[in-house]
């Protein structure tokens, strides 16, 4: 009896986190709907959200994976853009627009290429962090710079355009009446959720993030696991890059720079502890939807993109304040 009480409360509070997120999402939805019912509640608005949020959602899941072990990956945007650009250059080299199949085969190769760019970039981060013991912030800051730089060198500045139709399908198509990016996001979120909570890899990451030293004494292969976590982050980042460039049908070295802040915000808002050991894909998914409602609402209210950046920043600070306040009360 003596023990069961706090335990019960803890279980509640764990679910509370998700419950609070859902409440917040509904609140944002209601406020935005009330402010501009005509435009916000239109089917078109929701449809466009299902095209827009997956790339950010995947980036946020990538951030979650890095944060689980107490790290961070500041190079995700660089990886995403570099992947898209390399795929684009590949298409320019081999694809003839006369191809009647829409270039499915070529695009499959392009996806493979983009993913291997992500894997290689993630492996580089993982190598720097686990083998050379560089702090994740600095390592990924540097590599992010290198990736963005390479992207710039490859394109010379302007965007690469002219992707095959099959590539366009990834970003703008429909599967069973649902946006392809949305379907991809759901698949990725379910897969990552399963990997993080039901496999040895995921649990090892959680344990390593909770106490790296104890992980070594418990015989966990810390270096290898952290390495694979950055590899996973890289893969996810390049997936986001594929979706992004598919949707815009272009690739550029400085696309999505504000996504870095947003991905971190979503991770923190979704209940991830930046110090490691805590975080769920479910939390991230709800947080990304909430913030998409917020930004779509503001766009409908004709706020400029810059003002929306301001709001994202303010929201991040607000979340920090609320989290701190909640922890203090508890």
């Amino acid at each position: 009896m003596k023990y069961s009480l706090p335990d019960f409360r803890r279980l509640m509070s764990r679910d509370n986190n998700i419950v609070q997120l859902i409440v917040m999402t509904i609140a944002i939805f209601l406020i935005m709907a009330a402010l501009n019912p005509d435009k916000f509640l239109r089917y078109y608005n929701f449809e466009s959200i299902t095209y827009l949020f997956p790339e950010l959602g995947v980036l946020s899941i990538a951030m979650l994976v890095a944060m689980l072990t107490g790290g961070i990956d500041l190079s995700v945007i660089g990886i995403a853009n570099l992947s898209g650009i390399l795929a684009g250059l590949f298409f320019h080299a081999v694809y003839q627009s006369a191809d009647p199949s829409g270039g499915v085969g070529v695009v499959a190769l392009g996806v493979l290429l983009a993913l291997s760019v992500g894997a290689a970039a993630g492996a580089l981060n993982g190598f720097l962090i686990t083998r050379l013991r560089v702090t994740p912030i600095l390592a990924t800051l540097g590599t992010g710079q290198v990736f963005t730089g390479l992207a710039l060198v490859l394109t010379g500045g302007p965007a690469i355009v002219g992707f095959p139709p099959a590539w366009d399908f990834i970003g703008n198509g429909k599967i069973l009446g649902l946006a392809t990016p949305f379907v991809l996001f759901v698949i990725i979120a379910c897969a990552m959720s399963f990997i993080l909570s039901r496999t040895t890899f995921g649990l090892n990451l959680l344990l390593i993030g909770t106490n790296p030293k104890a992980a070594v004494f418990a015989g966990l292969r810390k270096g290898r696991m952290v390495f694979f976590s950055y590899l996973t982050t890289g893969l996810l980042a390049s997936t986001a890059g594929i979706i992004l460039s598919g949707r815009t049908n272009a690739a550029k070295s400085d696309y999505g720079t504000s996504y870095l802040l947003q991905a971190i915000l979503i991770a923190v808002l979704g209940g991830t502890n930046p110090a490691g050991g805590k975080g769920t894909v479910a939390g991230i998914s709800i947080a990304v939807v909430a913030l998409m409602f917020l930004s779509s609402g503001f766009q409908i209210l004709r706020f400029s993109n810059h003002l929306i950046d301001f709001i994202w920043g303010a929201f991040l600070l607000l979340v920090i304040a609320i989290n701190a306040f909640r922890n203090r009360v508890r």
Partner: peptide
Amino acid sequence: TEGLFLGQSINRNILATTYDSIA
């Protein structure tokens, strides 16, 4: 500092080393 994962459940602490063999 070397033995326990303080923020994790008893179950996960007990299984930390065994996960590989029950997966």
